[in-house]
Nucleic acid binder design. Structure first.
Lengths: 335, 335
DNA sequence: CTGAAAGCGCTTACAG
DNA sequence: CTGAAAGCGCTTACAG
């Protein structure tokens, strides 16, 4: 049923090499021959098969984004930035969702780059330990990290310590003392950094750090970066610390849950989220902005340059996140 | 640098067939041989190459989701459902983002299935005209449609006419008359159906239909299914129709924008959205629920069955959407 | 349980 | 501009 290059060649009375050339945009084909081949190909719905092309040419024209969980606003925005860039450059994007946990997680990551299904890889929020990174280093495959960095890899990330610091310090500078933090999975690297920044702000201000003010909800699903996780955490926090007077939240999506918890419990304290996802502007959520689309675009650019020159100097781009003030901190921080 | 099956075979002192069998989970290999091969493969980081396997076996173990735009909450949820199902079954998911517009859009769709990079395809919100569907029908490729249906294709969709009808009728039954609708790109099929349901509710209640009450914001980006689109539409609507007393919104994400517009203009009328994305519960948005994750899972199931039996009867699953009442219609519709 | 060999559908020097 | 031929790295009857 499905026709091959041989069928087209026979019908057109040319060699398979010629048919191949027509489809590979080679200009070493006469106008006349090209038209004939194209017409026949069109009539039978022929198009070169991806796998055969990939094997023979050793090029797939594909770059692969490797992400730990699907359906996450942060990834969605980054993927949007990647897609915009890639489309312009004629590359195809494949998205690989690593579903494993623990050791299996790394095995999946390693597996996917070994299979050589793409010419280059964008790792989004893939956090590994040094042994694992070193091991990945052995593979002669272009990889650019997003939201992570490690010696020897190109990367594009945001300073999480600084982001959390800015949010917390803003509260402190406005006179707040009892500032909670809604956290998520403790082993998550961005969380560790954000907790570090949060702590640092207290240290710099000579305020004692109270670990019981860092709380998270259930972390089983999406590492706790969910509305529900924020809701649970805020509820818990208010019950344990009725005198809480401000709160920093590890993600905007958790902040959405936290806002509802406050509403349900009829308390109202200033809140700062993290990410600046699109809805934040509309619900008036103050937040620490990460330039997600830009990060996707820059990382893509970096990867393509690496693919063209494997001895280019390693580039590590580190963004400074920005504090955006809106209604959720109104009348307090805004002036 | 990268080793092949030949290298492994030579080092292990076996034939390439044996190495291949070790990796294809065939059990026709002695324990001893398998261990030896695996050890050597591990030491050099060998893994069969996807393209060579795909070509030789004519199987890619991959299914492809074809989506029109990246970064859309509706797709994200559906993809989540697909991913959950697929992971259990050992298939890989590739996501293809159709970026073209107009004729080019269909060409991209056709192109992607011709390349045979996957064993089966899930088309999410891919809306074509009859000629185009018929043309796609010629290809001997398993395809399941999500959020669309067409004669001869397996599909999983939701009754958009009914959804819009339910929302509008609920308003009418509560005594509202001047009910606006926030729409999006007029040529979008779900929008056409939702407008139809909206109209139908008026007809059934013998109320005159006022087309000027159907408004949309800018539709350039994501067909207008954006916070901004909803914001603009609501602002416009309130200005043109100060006596508006309720509003149905074509998506929750637009409703988020609409809520802000109401807030900015200091008006407050009941609002019903569409989709029931995760945040809706937390911001108290009444909505028409589409079972997005379920749709993804069921469609995946359907596709896999089709892949195993190409003469199975066509299945067209049509969900009835459900009205969910929350704070945005409080005290009015809730009892 | 194992190997030799043909084949999957392309690309790409090489020669003309 | 075009063709013959080798090769890409696997899988899979077939035979033993």
């Amino acid at each position: 049923m499905a026709s091959t290059i041989y069928d087209i060649a026979k019908k057109a009375g040319v060699s398979i090499a010629t048919v191949s050339r027509v489809f590979s945009q080679s200009n070493n084909v006469s106008e006349k021959t090209r038209d004939k081949v194209l017409k026949i190909a069109e009539s039978v719905g022929y198009h070169p098969q991806a796998y055969a092309q990939g094997l023979a040419s050793k090029k797939s024209n594909t770059i692969m984004a490797v992400v730990p969980v699907m359906s996450n606003y942060f990834f969605m925005e980054i993927l949007g930035g990647i897609q915009d860039k890639l489309t312009k450059l004629g590359y195809e994007l494949t998205i690989y969702n690593v579903t494993g946990t623990g050791d299996n997680f790394f095995q999946q990551v390693e597996h996917v780059i070994r299979r050589r299904a793409a010419e280059g890889y964008l790792f989004i929020s893939i956090h590994l330990n040094p042994d694992q990174w070193d091991r990945l280093h052995k593979y002669p495959v272009p990889i650019t990290l997003i939201d992570e960095f490690y010696e020897g890899f190109d990367s594009v990330s945001v300073d999480n310590v600084q982001g959390a610091y800015k949010a917390t310090k803003a509260f402190i500078d406005s006179g707040y003392q009892k500032i909670g933090m809604i956290s998520a999975l403790a082993s998550s690297k961005p969380i560790q950094d954000r907790i570090k920044g949060y702590e640092l702000a207290f240290e710099d201000s000579d305020i004692d750090f109270d670990p019981s003010l860092v709380v998270s909800g259930n972390t089983d699903y999406r590492d706790g970066f969910t509305e529900k996780g924020g809701y649970e955490a805020m509820k818990h926090m208010i019950q344990e610390h009725p005198s809480l007077d401000a709160c920093f939240c590890a993600s905007d999506i958790q902040a959405v849950g936290a806002l509802k918890a406050m509403d349900d419990l009829e308390v109202s304290i200033p809140l700062i989220g993290y990410d600046d996802i699109e809805i934040s502007e509309y619900i008036g959520l103050s937040t620490i902005r990460q330039p997600m689309r830009d990060m996707g675009a820059i990382a893509t650019q970096t990867l393509l340059e690496r693919m063209n020159d494997d001895k280019k100097a390693i580039s590590q781009t580190l963004y400074s996140p920005q504090l955006i003030l809106r209604k959720s901190t109104n009348g307090i921080l805004n002036k």
